[in-house]
């Protein structure tokens, strides 16, 4: 079984309670309609249960969000783009940034034309923000 971390448990609880609350509230509405009695016993029970579940669900989702906000966001990936010195050669290579890389650093020979390879750009990949 997949090991659940604390925030996943919170998320699951929140989802579970929101589903339960929807079911209960739905039952409450159905009971009111079927008997045409506003002071219906079942209906009020279901309503109370639904509201309770909703509150619990909101509480867990709040805890979940707080836990997430306290976590350090994962660093985005930095890419190093390498080009060939030779203007006629369009050799291009992209790899992940390694420490010691800098723009216009010479990094060996071109496999296509044996020209000099250099780092042309270093930039952050735009990852979908995990906020």
């Amino acid at each position: 079984m997949v090991k659940l971390s604390k925030n996943n448990v919170l998320l699951l609880l929140s989802i579970l309670f929101s589903i339960l609350s929807i079911i209960f509230l739905f039952m409450a509405v159905i009971n009111v309609q079927s008997t045409y009695d506003l002071v219906n016993l079942y209906s009020i029970d279901f309503l109370a249960a639904g509201v309770l579940c909703m509150i619990l669900s909101m509480f867990f989702s709040y805890r979940h969000r707080r836990l997430l906000s306290l976590k350090i966001l994962k660093q985005s990936q930095t890419v190093t783009r390498i080009r060939c010195d030779n203007d006629n050669c369009n050799y291009k290579e992209e790899r992940f940034f390694q420490e010691g890389d800098y723009i216009f650093r010479e990094v060996g020979k071109c496999p296509k034309c044996n020209g000099n390879l250099y780092i042309d750009a270093i930039y952050d990949l735009e990852l979908k923000a995990k906020k």
Binding site: T78, A121, D124, E126
Partner: peptide
């Protein structure tokens, strides 16, 4: 103040 974006390059 953070790593260059492609737009900036």
């Amino acid at each position: 103040i953070t790593t260059m974006k492609k737009d900036v390059i």
